[in-house]
């Protein structure tokens, strides 16, 4: 095994950072939603709406940056529907989330008619000048487009806000015990609405990264289940922001690694390689949760429950 089957670790890390961006963005958004006590299973639907809205915006304005804004807006608008149903009409969150996915897949395909076979404007890697020529580190740290850095920065920001600010405190209070938060005078509905919008916007941005950078083109069903993985990553992270990064990079890393192992002619059977991202994610979660014994209990206490202010 020369150089571990010819796989350059620096290149592998650089690839997994790019590969993980969509699920990282969607997962950190969903984390905020769930921290506020709301379970939105519609991530896949919001992602694909972001993918098409971002694609249309970028193609018609010629600006990839506006594309990402358009994608975030698309995801947020769809999440607004979820918010109306679950927060105002107190509909069941699990079912509404799944309906959102169904609706998003359908609507995105309708909107995308006529956008097949078009190449969107290019999102360039940032120019770090000589920094990107540093061996190993240059490739890992200074070779990406802005969204890769943004995804990490957003995770850091969410962590800081949740941990150190009053906003974070209110958000957690609402998620842990909405009756108590209400009694303290916090507007439970408003907090949750904003959290849902934030989650929708980030899922939309993640979707836009798929249609504008990763693939880049529009095809029906382009997200191919990425939203479900994002949901799993939030659980994996046991609702802790930095663990979202670990989970996303672990899953993305194994997915990229298994393809690299195939490409270099490894003798491990392909079907086991293709299962490996899922199995290893389970395995790592088992190790993490058995060590602490309390990881599963970290879920926000009001998660998935409707709130109705009786007074």
């Amino acid at each position: 095994m020369m150089e571990f089957c010819g796989i350059n670790p620096a290149v592998l890390v650089a690839s997994l950072m790019v590969a993980s961006v969509p699920i990282l963005l969607a997962a950190i958004g969903e984390l905020v939603v769930e921290k506020s006590g709301v379970l939105n299973l519609g991530v896949e639907g919001m992602m694909i709406m972001g993918a098409i809205c971002g694609f249309i915006t970028a193609v018609s304005t010629g600006s990839p940056l506006l594309g990402f804004l358009g994608g975030a807006a698309g995801g947020a608008v769809l999440s607004l529907m979820f918010a109306f149903l679950t927060q105002v009409l107190l509909a069941n969150q699990v079912a509404t989330g799944l309906a959102l996915t169904l609706f998003g897949l359908g609507l995105s395909s309708l909107m995308g008619q006529g956008y097949n076979g078009i190449k969107p404007p290019l999102t360039e890697a940032l120019n770090f000048g000589p920094l990107s020529d540093i061996p190993v580190l240059g490739r890992i740290l200074f070779s990406h487009d802005w969204v890769v850095y943004a995804s990490v920065a957003i995770i850091a920001a969410v962590w800081a806000v949740l941990k150190y600010t009053r906003t974070g405190l209110i958000l957690r209070a609402v998620g842990e015990n909405h009756d108590a938060a209400h009694a303290l005078g916090y507007k439970v509905g408003l907090v949750r609405l904003l959290a849902i919008l934030f989650g929708g916007a980030l899922a939309g941005m993640g979707g836009a990264y798929l249609s504008l950078v990763r693939v880049p083109q529009w095809t029906d069903g382009i997200t191919a289940g990425a939203g479900w993985i994002a949901l799993a990553i939030v659980v994996f992270a046991s609702w802790k922001p930095w663990r979202v990064l670990i989970g996303g990079y672990l899953f993305g890393g194994i997915s990229v690694l298994q393809l690299n192992l195939q490409a270099c002619g490894s003798r491990i059977p392909v079907e086991y390689l293709s299962m490996s991202p899922y199995l290893i994610t389970i395995l790592v979660l088992v190790i993490m949760s058995s060590g602490r014994g309390r990881a599963a209990l970290n879920a926000p206490a009001s998660l998935g429950q409707s709130f109705h202010a009786s007074r």
């Binding site: 529907m81 309906a99 169904l102 897949l105 359908g106 609507l107 395909s109």
Partner: peptide, 17 residues
């Protein structure tokens, strides 16, 4: 289009909920 039917199903679920 099949997509319109999907969106329609989504709508039905929204209204039911």
């Amino acid at each position: 289009p099949a997509a319109a039917i999907q969106a329609f199903q989504g709508m039905l679920l929204f209204f039911l909920l």
